[in-house]
Design a protein around this nucleic acid. Structure first.
Lengths: 248, 248
DNA sequence: CGATAAACAATCAAAAACGCTCAAAAGAGG
DNA sequence: CCTCTTTTGAGCGTTTTTGATTGTTTATCG
């Protein structure tokens, strides 16, 4: 196995597990502990992970300096389940918006069978995947940001305002204990607000890593969301809400 | 087997596998390791793969999934020369437009060294490449068309009208014997007209396959172009023009 | 605070991969 | 048919990577 490939696999594992010991990594990847330590040291130097005694944890998004292209390569099974469930809420002939995030990316795989749907998105990667499935796709214009390969800012927001959207699918960094959806990025929060305003229904894709996570900017209260799709059965208790909670 | 053919096969394998060791390649292609190493060095020099100890990984972290047949046309060495020459016309701090075509795609590889340039484009693949080189990139919004992975239509045209462009780089399907630039696609012709209107200078990338080719829609006369970059020394006679003709 | 166990950095040797040179083989052109 | 050029493969010394070993540092718990 190539070194870079091993790096990617470590990052992929950390994307799932949040924390992993050097010991476990050594077993999973069939290399010795010193090698794993050297890898972790290098990845830490690149600011892609945070080292700690015994292993490493993933970088929190607000600390990300280097763009994390690797995240796109992660085909998280959890996220895939959320996306499949989300796609079930899409009816033929609808106009939907999907925001740019690693969580929603795999929705492209489940929309190919729908008839005459239109998707609007600010994510370049997602747009490309959708187009290749033969789905009518609009991408908002504007500056492209390197770390997320997506459009934000007033250009993109104006673009979205031109549409009447049936359903808006999105994710965000976390939900804090007051039931507020929060995110470390202001432009991302802004564009989601605009898209939500143009939409009849909102669907929030929320894997369990997002619970009790507070970051600088508030998007909205969880109470205002129409559908919450989650992989944790504890979501109902945590959210204390009567919305439609779909557990996959 | 021809060398270029081996290059193509290596790229095709990397499209599938993402990582490959020199050892494995040597077995798959029935050539010796030194040969594979030379191939990988050359492909790395062309920015088509990223070398690493033991082998190579694909250059794009896989999100923009270029269809396989796409690569073949993209990798043309002639086009690469045109693009390199075109990039020489770009100065620091400029705002340039590059239209979406297989001919202009490789300009991304030659713009990384420029300081503080801004690129506007309607091509998704090109935009992605540019962003990954750290270049400030704006992509026009709008519907995305499957066969070209690019934006056309009034959304995109309006977007372009917001900019004052220093130089516009483009290609088109052919030049007929009356000296008219022609193209089989009306939307593409339209968007080029708009971009040309917003630009101080125009640069036409014209490989020799485009001579004496007439298709339905007229873009403009060759006389109105500021720079013509071509790979055929016969261009001067053919065009009968006094523009700046740059032969590579 | 001190003992203990785990994790660590540093060093070193073996293995793998590398670049380089050179000669043989294949191709192009007269 | 011969010469010149390009491409390929083999040999060899060098560099990189890896895993074992060592002694040191760090965390934990009584």
């Amino acid at each position: 196995m190539l070194k870079e490939e091993r790096y990617d696999r470590i990052l992929a594992i950390l994307d799932e597990e949040k924390y992993i010991s050097a010991q476990k990594l050594s077993e999973k990847l069939f290399v010795s502990l010193p090698t794993i330590r050297r890898d972790l040291a290098e990845l830490d130097r690149r600011n892609q992970i945070i080292r700690s005694h015994g292993g490493a944890k993933m970088v929190e998004p607000e600390h990300i300096v280097t763009p994390l292209n690797f995240r796109k390569t992660v085909n998280s099974f959890q996220k895939r389940m959320l996306c499949q469930s989300a796609a079930n809420l899409v009816n033929d002939n609808e106009i939907i918006f999907i925001d740019s995030s690693t969580t929603t990316l795999q929705m492209a795989d489940f929309l190919g069978e729908k008839k005459n749907i239109t998707v609007i998105t600010n994510g370049i990667s997602l747009a490309t995947l959708l187009v290749q499935k033969g789905i009518k796709t609009y991408c908002t214009g504007g500056e492209i940001f390197q770390n997320s390969l997506a459009h934000f800012g007033s250009f993109a927001e104006d673009f979205i305002r031109r549409f009447n959207i049936d359903t808006m699918f999105f994710s965000c960094h976390g939900v804090n204990d007051n039931g507020m959806l929060t995110d470390p990025s202001l432009p991302e929060t802004q564009i989601r607000k605009v898209a939500i305003n143009q939409s009849k229904k909102t669907v929030f894709l929320c894997d369990k890593s997002k619970f009790s996570l507070s970051t600088p900017y508030n998007l909205m209260s969880i109470q205002e969301i129409d559908y919450i799709i989650t992989d944790s059965p504890k979501a109902k208790d945590f959210f204390c809400t009567k919305n439609n909670i779909i557990t996959v």
